[in-house]
């Protein structure tokens, strides 16, 4: 089995409760004052009452092209053949923080020793665990469900081999993923059109940084009537 594993996120089902961050920290015995492997960001926009707040839960996406792995001088970061997970060999890490710059998701964190650690999709428990472990198994085969997935109140976070996650995603999300949305690193559901009461300008989340920044600028830069619905479709 050599299929890439990946994450899935549905902003429509995320209630922004941060249970994923806490579950992650507790699974991996991470102190509260350390940077989180999984973060929830609340994006705000608009003025009351034309206001929206969108929660976005993120961690390492175990990118197929793993930019962090490419820049890591001591090859401490490994993009695993067997399951596509990106793990860290902390016995090689020199703590240069180059990976943090390369990562589009802010996933690498550094402990007091200065060594990098990040999400390992619960292949192991604790910083650096997972490296060199046998391939990731599905829960039905005895694998550990990622803690964030297991504890997501709204089942907004999913993880699994690409084909399975795609099968569970909506048709739109799967199609967008195939067309290279979010650099095909994560599947994200489009925002429901009818959510966010009274908001005609439908929100659209893009968990992506590597799209050319210019793409994020509304045409003409003067979209003052709020009709910015489709300028960033991921």
């Amino acid at each position: 089995m050599s299929e890439q594993w990946m994450f899935y996120f549905d902003p429509n089902r995320c209630i922004g409760c941060h249970a994923c961050s806490i579950a992650c920290n507790q699974r991996h015995d991470r102190d509260a004052d350390e940077d989180d492997w999984r973060t929830v960001t609340h994006l705000e926009r608009g003025e009351y009452p034309d206001f929206q707040e969108l929660p976005v839960s993120m961690s390492c996406m175990h990118c197929h092209d793993a930019p962090c792995e490419q820049v890591c001088p001591p090859d401490a970061i490994v993009k695993r053949e067997e399951d596509g997970l990106v793990t860290v060999n902390r016995d090689r890490c020199i703590g240069c923080h180059y990976c943090a710059w390369a990562c589009p998701y802010g996933a690498p964190t550094y402990d007091d020793e200065g060594l990098m650690s990040k999400c390992n999709m619960c292949l192991g428990e604790g910083p650096g665990s997972g490296h060199g472990k046998p391939p990731k198994q599905k829960p039905e085969d005895g694998g550990l469900k990622p803690s964030c997935v297991d504890n997501c109140v709204g089942e907004a976070i999913k993880a699994g081999p690409v084909s399975e996650v795609m099968a569970e995603a909506s048709e739109t999300a799967a199609r967008r993923f195939e067309n290279g949305a979010y650099n095909s690193r994560v599947i994200v559901e489009p925002m429901d059109e009818d959510s966010a009461a009274g908001m005609d300008d439908v929100a659209d989340a893009s968990i992506d940084a590597n799209d050319e920044g210019a793409a994020a600028v509304p045409a003409g830069g003067s979209d003052a009537d709020g009709g910015a619905s489709d300028w960033l479709n991921g």
């Binding site: 991996h28 015995d29 060999n89 902390r90 016995d91 890490c93 020793e113 060594l115 192991g124 428990e125 604790g126 910083p127 650096g128 665990s129 997972g130 490296h131 060199g132 472990k133 550990l144």
Partner: peptide, 14 residues
Amino acid sequence: DLIEGDADRDLGRL
């Protein structure tokens, strides 16, 4: 102090 390479230890608590 840092030469010992035990940073990769899995907590193995579960």
